[in-house]
């Protein structure tokens, strides 16, 4: 078995789990539900094995370029799904999470997957692991919050006749995953700052990635402030969560891929 095979198998597994989850929305057979879950779980374990294998092969944390970041992002999305599932059983959460994982992994496969040597500034395994891992746990939390926000907007229309409990659960998932993402984004920004101070002598340099992380932080701070301190919920909160995720995408992908931005994170 090769590393690439593990990657391909996990992508296929997610795709089939997505298909089965969609089928389950229309045909509620218990075996479909169990199989889809098992497949998603097995694929998740295979993807974890892929990350570990790459870590050992590269002799460094595999979180240093766009390909590796996307692999970690998709893995974190499915992890958040399983964490949410411990408390909430929402029909649409699995297909949306699987869909995001498939899209992110498929996008990852469009990037060069060769193991590359690290730039001197990145050669600090501890900070690289903590900073990138926490950032992507945060992004994944926001991704699931985004999916829940769209779900909320769809099911909360009066014509849908969705049960009150389902609406409340989706609303709760939306805000709790955003809160989870916010805590980890904060830790990610802080660890990045401390690392930057160790590597470059400045904890904040207004680099585009840093600045957009701060913008995203402000947006979600406003969201959570409105949600928890002012009691905002419903469609307004859902729309803020959607807008917040657009900022996450700009922070993660836009800053690295758009030519208008260039800075200290251009390697990633």
């Amino acid at each position: 078995m090769t590393m690439k095979l593990l990657f391909d198998l996990s992508l296929c597994g997610y795709a089939i789990a997505l298909l089965m989850s969609v089928v389950y929305l229309f045909a509620r057979r218990r075996y479909i539900d169990l199989t889809a879950n098992a497949l998603l779980g097995v694929s998740h374990v295979m993807q974890f094995a892929y990350i570990v294998w790459r870590w050992i092969a590269a002799w460094r944390p595999p979180f240093s370029n766009m390909f590796e970041s996307l692999v970690l992002f998709s893995w974190a999305i499915v992890l958040i799904y399983f964490l949410v599932r411990i408390r909430f059983t929402l029909l649409t959460l699995r297909p949306t999470s699987a869909l995001m994982a498939v899209l992110v992994l498929a996008y990852a496969s469009s990037f060069e997957s060769d193991i590359e040597p690290l730039l001197p500034a990145l050669r600090n395994s501890w900070w690289l692991t903590v900073h990138v891992f926490t950032c992507f746990l945060g992004y994944a939390g926001f991704a699931v919050s985004f999916a829940s926000a769209i779900h909320y907007l769809v099911i909360s229309r009066p014509a849908r006749h969705t049960s009150e409990q389902t609406i409340l659960d989706v609303d709760a998932v939306m805000s709790k995953t955003a809160a989870f993402g916010f805590i980890f984004l904060t830790i990610g920004i802080i660890t990045g700052s401390v690392w930057a101070n160790t590597a470059w002598g400045r904890y904040w340099q207004w680099d585009p990635k840093e600045t957009w992380s701060l913008i995203t932080w402000f947006v979600y701070a406003a969201f959570l402030h409105c949600r928890y301190m002012r009691g905002w919920s419903g469609p307004v909160a859902a729309w803020i969560s959607i807008v917040g995720f657009v900022f996450v995408l700009i922070t993660f992908l836009g800053v690295n891929l758009l030519r208008i931005f260039s800075g200290l994170h251009s390697y990633a």
Partner: peptide, 29 residues
């Protein structure tokens, strides 16, 4: 970090608002 864990990790405020969200389906919040 400590403050956010206390605010969002324990979330007594969230509990209050989740009760507040218990509105009839379709009713505007």
């Amino acid at each position: 970090i400590g403050g956010l864990i206390l605010l969002l990790g324990f979330k007594p405020a969230a509990k209050r608002t989740s009760d507040a969200t218990r509105l009839p389906v379709g009713e505007k919040r």
